[in-house]
Write a protein that binds this DNA or RNA. Structure first.
Length: 610
DNA sequence: ATAGGGTTAG
């Protein structure tokens, strides 16, 4: 109360200068809503000084709901508690609502219990929806059942607002029979309670029921809303039923029902996940209003389609639009940065996340950061972050082991692997095997592979593991052993295994061995251009030009094209530059090629061979 | 004067 009077003194001058003497309450509300929290405080001060707060119960309730709508539940509760007169039931309801709609569920429950001890007041049809919502957030099924019984006691069991909240609660906690009973016992059902059924089933993975209720809802002639569309789209996205998702989009366009922001977001998500980048963009660009979900879904859609540059551009637009990124934005954007190895951008993004307190304790985000630092070459920074994590998950271990592997630090990878507190999975084993391979640690690698074959990790060797072993043996010059392992791998991995073997044969000058299996790669994976190129190269090394010409001829006839290699480099203060093989398009191409030749010369002079 | 339902991540 002391604080409030001080506040009143402070802002009464301001209020007096900008407002006529006691305008109507609704006018005040409009002004306050426009100015959000500051406006609410101004109104609060004015109501106190004018005495309106003690004479009008409506004034107190309006004030509580204003604070609630400006996301200030604590101020709402303070106004409620400091009321000069005992608050009436409407004020109690507004206060409970302020807490429950601002995620202060436990406080909402406490306030509700205090209301129950008040002999003069009983909860009504406005109280129940709020308290049920709070209990749903708390996941308290025991309390939900008690409150449900209480609804009958007060004769409010046919109230559709309370029933919607109850249905929502039961479905979230997978009490399907209870939810359906409440739903069917109602004398009338509106679109909201239908939405509760559809979305409740959708969220708990009961996709069939969700679709059935949606279909039934349409049969009953209920007009769907943006809430319905969002829920039903999430079903089709989860089940990868993109054609049905498209049909929903068409339905929305045809019936002209408003999409609202969330339903548009769900469409972007759907199109993003079915590689319909253009359609996702179409929806995104046509939105009049975008929230953080819109941006996150759109950035992820670029990301799924592999367009890292577009993802980064979108991120820039997001910041310009003044939308605050969150941890999900960061996990979507960091892989794009990693892909183009833009360390400066990565550091900048990390600093931004730290400044805005977005990093706190999100395992996904920490993993993305570790991966980014490792892929951008800053492996020791990656390790510092890894060690600082309060709790690493399996992905963290895998990322860090992979990081050491790709930096040729086999010993560090092996040490990390041996100190693992979590059980490894197949990805972990691939990482540690490739670390042994790149680090030339054949014996350690063979030992892990042997243990794997003996079932020690509970994982049986898969294609990738064979591939790692071929690579490892090949690099160590154990070509016969490499060949034996390549012969064990099948399918696409078999082809890659043979390619690894062929590469190793060439490295070791055993071109005859390479020629012997050159076409096996093509036989196994004729669609893969890499196999054809490999075969042609092998014949070239051995000087078998007739065979080489034959392979090239077949490649032409079949239209096999070599995929052009592409790389990026980040220049401090000058952004990211992309290059493809033989690229002369860069404004400073001449200087760049001169520098490359210079570096190649130093490397040769330093005694390095290919 | 006060009330119920929704989307995104390795």
């Amino acid at each position: 109360m002391k604080q409030l009077s001080a506040l009143a003194r402070q802002s009464s001058d301001l209020a007096a200068s900008s407002l006529p003497i006691l305008p109507s309450l609704s006018k005040l509300q409009q002004l306050a809503a426009g100015r959000r929290l500051a406006g609410s405080r101004e109104l609060h001060a004015l109501l106190l000084t004018s005495g309106l707060l003690s004479s009008s119960p409506a004034a107190l309730t309006s004030l509580i709901s204003l604070y609630s709508n400006s996301s200030s539940p604590v101020d709402a509760l303070a106004a409620f508690s400091s009321s000069p007169n005992p608050p009436n039931l409407v004020a109690w309801n507004a206060a409970i609502s302020a807490l429950s709609s601002n995620s202060l569920s436990a406080d909402a429950l406490r306030l509700f219990r205090r209301l129950r001890t008040n002999p003069a007041l009983s909860p009504d049809r406005f109280t129940f929806p709020c308290i049920i919502k709070a209990l749903t957030d708390l996941g308290d099924i025991i309390e939900i059942r008690k409150i449900h019984a209480l609804l009958f006691k007060f004769g409010l069991d046919s109230e559709i607002f309370a029933a919607s909240a109850v249905v929502n609660a039961y479905l979230k906690m997978e009490f399907v029979d209870c939810a359906e009973k409440v739903f069917h016992d109602l004398p009338e059902r509106d679109v909201v309670i239908w939405n509760s059924m559809v979305n409740g089933f959708a969220q708990t993975g009961r996709f069939t029921e969700a679709k059935e209720y949606f279909a039934e809802m349409l049969r009953e002639g209920i007009v769907p809303t943006g809430f319905t569309i969002t829920g039903v789209l999430s079903v089709f996205t989860s089940t990868a039923d993109f054609r049905a998702g498209r049909r929903i989009h068409a339905f929305v366009v045809k019936t002209g029902c408003d999409l609202y922001v969330s339903a548009s977001n769900s469409l972007i998500d759907l199109y993003g996940k079915c590689h319909g980048l253009e359609e996702a963009e179409l929806v995104f660009e046509s939105m009049l209003e975008r929230d953080v979900f819109s941006w996150n879904s759109m950035i992820s859609a670029s990301q799924y389609s592999g367009d890292h540059v577009k993802a980064l551009q979108l991120f820039g637009r997001m910041l310009l639009a003044g939308v605050q990124p969150d941890a999900i934005t960061a996990t979507a954007i960091l892989p794009a940065i990693s892909q183009i190895a833009a360390l400066a951008s990565g550091q900048e993004t990390h600093a931004y996340l730290l400044r805005h307190g977005i990093t706190n304790g999100d395992v996904f985000l920490d993993n993305a950061l570790i991966d980014m630092y490792a892929k951008c070459g800053s492996i020791d920074d990656a390790r510092v972050l890894f060690d600082q994590m309060p709790q690493q998950d399996l992905a963290s271990w895998n990322i860090m082991i992979d990081a050491y592997a790709s930096h040729g630090r086999g010993q560090d990878a092996l040490e990390l692997f041996n100190s693992m507190t979590a059980a490894p999975n197949e990805v972990t084993i691939v990482g540690v095997l490739s670390a042994c391979s790149h680090g030339g640690m054949v014996e350690a690698g063979r030992e892990i592979f042997r243990r794997m074959e003996a079932g020690e990790y509970g994982i049986s060797p898969a294609a990738e593991h064979y591939l790692c072993m071929v690579d490892m043996m090949g690099r160590a010059g154990m070509l016969e052993a490499a060949k034996e392992i390549a012969a064990k791998a099948e399918g696409a991995a078999g082809a890659k295994g043979w390619r690894a073997y062929v590469t190793a044969c060439k490295e070791k000058g055993e071109v005859d061995r390479a020629v012997e299996v050159a076409e096996r790669v093509v036989e196994m994976e004729p669609e893969w251009s890499g196999g054809w190129v490999m075969a042609a190269n092998a014949y070239g090394w051995a000087g078998k030009y007739e065979e080489l010409a034959a392979v090239r001829g077949q490649m032409r006839r079949k239209g096999v094209r070599k995929v052009v290699g592409c790389s990026w480099v980040e220049v401090a203060g000058d952004g990211v530059h992309a290059f493809v093989t033989g690229d002369k398009g860069h404004p400073r191409a001449e200087a760049i090629y001169a520098a490359v030749h210079g570096i190649a010369g130093w490397v040769r002079d330093g005694g390095c061979v290919e």
